[in-house]
Structure formats: C-alpha cells, structure tokens
Design a protein around this nucleic acid. Structure first.
Lengths: 190, 190
DNA sequence: TGTACATCAGTGAACGCGCGTTCACTGATGTAC
DNA sequence: TGTACATCAGTGAACGCGCGTTCACTGATGTAC
C-alpha cells in the first residue's frame, strides 16, 4: 500500500487543506481526527505518518488558512476598480457571503478564542499570519507614513475581526446585517 | 443530605458564578463538569439537580458574565472623572490587566468563536447581552441621535472585542501592547 | 405541637461514547548489488 | 537491466482517558395529619 513520495506529499497537502476548512467550519475542538481524515479520503490511522500531533496540524492549517486568505485578498485587490484597497478588504470581510461561509473565512474570525488557548507554536504561527494581513492592508494606505499605515491597518483588521465574529454569533438576522453594514460604512468613510 | 431551599438556591448561584469564570478562563470545551463542580465545592453528580444540561449552564453563565460586566462598567462610569464614557469603557476593555484576567473579562472576547458554535438558546442569550452592552455604551454618547449613537457603540464594541481577542492570541508581548494602545488611542480620539 | 412520611440536594460509582494516539500488518515503492 | 530486500504510506483494530450523563443511595428538610 505504500505510495510514492510524490503521492505522499500530495496527501499531506490535502490533509492540511481539508483541516484548514474543517477547523474553521466546526472549530478545533469540534473536529475529530477520524472525521477529518475521512473528509480527506483517508482512514484515521495514517495520520501520524504525516504529523506528530493534532496540534501540529492545527498550526499548519492556520498558516494555510492565512495564506489562502492573503492570496484571495491579493487577487481581489489586483482587479483594478475604483474602490480603495480598504474598501475591497472590508467588503471581503464583511459581506454576508463571507459570514455564511465559515470554511473559507479569516481564521481569526472562525477560531479566535480557540487560537488564544492553543499552544505556543500555533499562536506564534497565528501571530505571523496576523502580521501578514496587517502588512497587506497597510500597503494599501499609500502616501501615509509607514507606522501610521500599520496602526490604521491593525485597527481596521481588529474592527473587522470583531464585527465579523459578532455578526456570526448573533441570532437576529437583522442585527447581524446591521453590524456588517455599519462596520463596513464606518471603515470606508473614515 | 438534603439542603434547605435557600441553601440549594445559593448552591445553584455559586455554580453559575463559578462556571462564568471557568468557561472564560479555560473555554467551554476546555471546562469539564467534574472540574467545574469541584471548583464550586461540590461533586459532579449533583449537577443535574440544578441544570438540564451543560449547554443550559453555558447559556446562564454567559448571561451572568454579561451582567457582571455591565455592573462593573456601570460602577466605573458612575465614578465621575474628566474622562468620557467611551474612554472609561475602552480603558476597561483594553488594559493589560483586563487582557491577563480572562476569568473576569468580556465573554465575547473570552469565548467569541465558541459562542458562535453554541446552540440557539445560548446564542440568543449572547445576543441579548451584546445589546445590553451596546445600549450601555450608546447612552454615553449624549447629544447624539439615538440611531447614530447605537451605530457608534456597536462599532466601538466590535473594535474592542476584536482588538482584545487578537491581543490575547499574539505571542509577541510588544505587539500585544501595541494593539491595545493603538486601539484605545483610536477609539478615544475619534 | 408532635409524628410519620414524602421530597429532593448532594454523593460517588457507573454508563456509553468519542477522542487522540498506538500498533501490527499489507504491499507498492525505492534502493543496493 | 534484473533481483532481493528494506522502507514506509495507508489500513483498521485497539488502547486509555475524560467527557456528559444516569442512577441508587443517604439523610436533612418540608409537609400532612
């Protein structure tokens, strides 16, 4: 049953990609390794050929989630429109579609309070990921002093992450929509 | 071993209060009923004399956490200072002390992404709690149209919740402090 | 007011279950000669 | 290039553990007469 090195590398990548979606969808605690491996088309026994522990996969899939978010934001930003960079990013964070598609959303929105309780390595990976997002957004504030741009980006991201989290938690659909709308308006008018 | 009605009611209250701290400290999934009951000075078997399920306790302790937060904010706001209401609230959300004391912090910061995955009842309780905080903060924006004050409060709370969550997640102490400081500055200068 | 009895808060053992992890095994892959 | 053998990706059963929940039991409380 042994697979070639190339196949094994593809399998590993598939597990990380699946995990990055499943963790965001069902939470870290809510995603068992058996279900996760099944979702990747494998049985659970093979997991430890690729990873030392579940926590290691959490860290890697958090990094993968950030990378795919950065990629999708970069691609949206490269489509030249009349909208500012911040408008594009805010629309991506604060649309109803993003709110309802947890498997593809920002990992800090989907997993925020779970990441806070993750181990040092995972939190360190999450920190790097957050800084990547800060840099990406700060770069959109052209003609602004770098330190000011970074502060603005940091605040805008915190605001979007908080608003997106609350908009998911709330049971009243109207309130949820209001949170998204008002926050987007606030960010793009300032 | 039966206790009087008064004692039983006190016990129930003690369990909710303990849970409200323990859930915030260790997360909902990270807090087992045995440990929780032990922390309240009881054995786990008695739990179901007071609650139908763990989830019911989650809902009640979320409400209790919001109530105690509202109380502590109200008390801080009533101490007349030169600071505006928003300044007082922001200081309370974004101080290092608040960041490091998870058992007493805002439940949306401590449990955000876990509450999103909780059941309808819990999320409904959380929604009511969020609206209480919105109203409390909106009331601080005097001489402002009520709908504008509510929008401002909603955005300020989202920002504080997002920033506080990220400041806890991040491994770099300097970055964590910067997030708190810049966000507080941003909120109180606007 | 006193007595007999039902109630029920709290105990601690036990339940089934799913979790993360381990392991013996299979058989295709990769390597040494 | 062909052959013998070591490697190891993936399988599926099994492990111990802690979880939420249930239950028989105890004995003080509360109630009916």
């Amino acid at each position: 049953m042994k697979k070639s090195k190339k196949e094994a590398a593809e399998t590993r990548q598939r597990i990380v990609k699946t995990a990055s979606a499943e963790f965001r969808r069902n939470g870290i605690n809510g995603t068992g390794l058996s279900d996760l491996m099944a979702a990747a088309g494998l049985t659970h026994g093979g997991f430890y050929r690729h990873f030392d522990s579940k926590e290691q996969l959490v860290a890697e899939s958090c990094a993968a989630a950030v990378d795919s978010l950065v990629e999708s934001l970069t691609s949206a930003l490269s489509r030249k429109t009349k909208r500012s960079g911040l408008e594009v990013v805010a629309a991506s964070y604060l649309s109803k579609e993003a709110r309802d598609d947890s498997s593809r959303c920002c990992p800090f929105v989907a997993l925020g309070s779970e990441l806070v309780r993750s181990d040092e390595t995972t939190r360190s990976v999450a920190t790097d990921g957050f800084l990547k997002l800060v840099d990406l957004l700060a770069a959109q504030f052209s003609r602004t002093r770098p330190d000011v741009a970074k502060a603005r980006a940091l605040i805008a991201l915190s605001t979007m992450i908080g608003a997106a989290t609350i908009s998911r938690m709330v049971t009243d659909p109207e309130l949820s929509a209001t949170i998204l709308r008002q926050t987007e308006k606030h960010l793009t008018e300032a």
